[in-house]
Every structure is written in C-alpha cells, then in structure tokens.
C-alpha cells in the first residue's frame, strides 16, 4: 500500500432526521482498519451529533450516540469541532460528550479527542488534508 493519506470525514448534518450521520459514522469505523491518518470534523448541524443525553426510545430508532465514545478505541483521536457552529446554536463544549482516547505511549493516559477550532483554523486543517469525505 502507498503511504498513509490524511483522511478527513466532514460531518455537517444532525442525527436521526436523516441517515447521513449514522452512515457516516459507519464509514469512519470501517475506514479505521485501513491505517490512514484519520481526522473527523463536526460543523454546522453536524455538531448536534455529539450532544449528550440523546434518548431515541420514543422514536423507535437506534441511539448511535454512544458509538462516538468508542472512536478512541478505533484510533480516531483527532476530532475537530467548529467553534462558530457551536456558538450559533447556543451550545458549548459542555453540551457535548466528553470524548477521550488512551495514549499507549504515555501509560494509557486519557487524552481529550475533541479539538475546538475556529472557522479560520478549520480552514487550515482542511487545507492540509489529502482526501475529504463529505456527509
């Protein structure tokens, strides 16, 4: 295989109303096996995917929000959340799940996966990627 590419999965849709969020997460999980340099972005309505306290019992759909906390186990440790998207929606990091990963090189120390970035910083992050997956 060629050298690892920088893969970015960009999530911009809210969960449940449409299937894009869930089927995007499926790509990220499958893609983890390919040993690329993976990052994930949540922006626009995509930030709603990460909110705490989702309970889908009443709508009879699968609640896939716990799966985000497993991303660290799949070595998906770079999760970008756009600050402006949160602010426009009256949200802060406290409204989102606390996503962590364990750093093997530092005796499995728990580290934050979420990186809060401004739109301008996100533009730089996106510019540095090789492949963008759009959902």
């Amino acid at each position: 295989m060629s050298d690892a590419k920088k893969f970015m999965y960009i999530n911009r849709k809210a969960p449940y109303g449409t299937i894009y969020a869930w089927e995007s997460l499926e790509v990220v999980l499958i893609g983890a096996a390919f040993e690329q340099d993976v990052s994930v972005t949540f922006m626009d309505d995509g930030v709603y995917q990460l909110t705490k306290g989702q309970d889908t019992t009443g709508i009879g759909m699968k609640n896939f929000s716990p799966t985000y906390s497993a991303l660290g186990d799949f070595e998906v440790t770079k999760i970008y959340v756009e600050k402006e998207s949160l602010e426009e929606r009256g949200l802060s990091l406290d409204d989102l799940q606390h996503l962590v990963w364990e750093d093997e090189d530092e005796d499995y120390a728990e580290k934050d996966s979420i990186r809060l970035v401004s739109r301008a910083e996100l533009a730089d992050v996106l510019a540095g990627q090789d492949v963008l997956f759009n959902f």
Partner: peptide, 20 residues
Amino acid sequence: SGLGQLVEGGIESDRLIVFG
C-alpha cells in the same frame, strides 16, 4: 460490497468527488 471499497477508493485515487 463493503464500505471498505469507498475507503480504498480514497486511498487509490487522485481525487474523490461526492455527489449528494
């Protein structure tokens, strides 16, 4: 086939373009 085929497309191609 599986989703891995999409990921492989991203690895093996010069460009990935999404229509939706």
